[in-house]
């Protein structure tokens, strides 16, 4: 199975190192980071690239761009793991559409193009008889898309509730357990590398709302966008509010919910009993599906991380290999 890898940040390096370590029958024949690219039909020396990258150098030849790799490398699957741009989805959208038009499968962790152009991209993949898979865009290591597409065949999914942002969950866990103020818990999250310098994308609830859009479209094909989600973040939560919830043996978590029968798409802080299955600690993610036959199902796992996200990407690549015999 020949793979072209675009993006060599934390997720890209995680994928490369797992391919190097585990083999898995995957050969990387094209590769690009933000400044350079390499094309080698016989397989790129990953070990060398990772050493170079960790030394702060461009991975390859600065005269080769990501688009050159998309157009000219010899690959079966394009793995698009460049940084997310939520207003345009670019440049990932162009990378993805170009590969699909060439009749190549695409696997991505990039939330931008999937949240913005889900239907258009899936239709394009269909037209060219290839797969577009995006397990890694939501809930990190939890194979929630696989579960929805294959594990629950024949079920009707009536509602979805989830904790889809590890940063917010970490902050609320620390506030609840240690009585920290919001500012203290946020500072701690930054120190641990869980929060960005500008944390608003997480704490204002935008990131979980994007994931909710992706899941709602994946399950119900609603064609919804971020503008249709009612969003309240966690930046107004006080330690006193958590203490008051605690008096009822409850706590507060940021919950993303979708209930199509009520046309409800919402991300908001909610009171949950401490014993509720969605009350997970730290940076964990959790998703509960309400279905007509299987009843209520809850999945818990790591929502981010280099190797955890690589797990979702590699799962998608190998799934495509199983589905399409033509790939080698």
């Amino acid at each position: 199975m020949k793979v072209a890898l675009l993006g060599l940040g934390s997720v890209g390096q995680g994928i490369a190192s797992m391919v190097l370590k585990k083999g898995l029958g995957i050969t990387i024949t094209g590769l690009a980071d933000s400044k350079s690219g390499i094309i080698d039909a016989k397989g790129i020396n990953i070990e060398e690239i990772l050493v170079r990258k960790r030394g702060g150098n461009p991975a390859g030849d600065t005269s080769v761009s990501a688009m050159d790799v998309v157009q000219n490398a010899d690959y079966d699957v394009l793995v698009e793991v460049t940084p997310t741009n939520i207003s345009t989805g670019e440049p990932a959208r162009t990378h993805i559409t170009s590969a699909l038009r060439k009749g190549r499968h695409v696997v991505t962790s990039n939330k931008g193009p999937i949240a913005l152009h889900h239907r258009e991209l899936l239709t394009l993949a269909d037209t060219h008889h290839v797969s577009l898979r995006y397990e890694a865009t939501v809930c990190g290591a939890i194979p929630i898309i696989h579960i929805l597409e294959h594990g629950l065949l024949g079920n009707q999914v009536k509602a979805l509730h989830g904790i889809m942002n590890g940063t917010c969950n970490f902050i609320l866990t620390r506030m609840s357990e240690e009585g920290l103020s919001y500012e203290q818990a946020l500072a701690e999250a930054r120190e641990m590398g869980y929060a960005e310098a500008d944390p608003s994308y997480d704490v204002k609830g935008i990131d979980p709302a994007i994931k909710l859009v992706i899941l709602a479209n994946a399950i119900w094909n609603l064609g919804v966008t971020l503008h249709e989600v009612e969003i309240t973040g966690i930046d107004q939560i006080t330690p006193e509010a958590l203490r008051l919830a605690g008096e009822d043996d409850a706590t507060i978590r940021l919950i993303a919910e979708a209930i199509p029968a009520r046309q409800l798409l919402r991300v908001s802080p909610r009171i949950l009993p401490r014993s509720h299955p969605l009350v997970v600690k730290g940076t964990l993610n959790a998703v509960t599906l309400e279905t007509d036959m299987a009843g209520s199902l809850t999945f818990i796992g790591k929502g981010a991380g280099s190797i955890e996200t690589a797990s979702a990407i590699i799962g998608d690549i190998l799934f495509i290999r199983e589905q399409y015999d033509g790939c080698s």
Binding site: A159, E257, R270, I271
Partner: peptide
């Protein structure tokens, strides 16, 4: 004023 509702009763 931010109103935080419970999840259970809304489910």
């Amino acid at each position: 004023i931010l109103v935080i509702e419970s999840l259970e009763e809304n489910g």
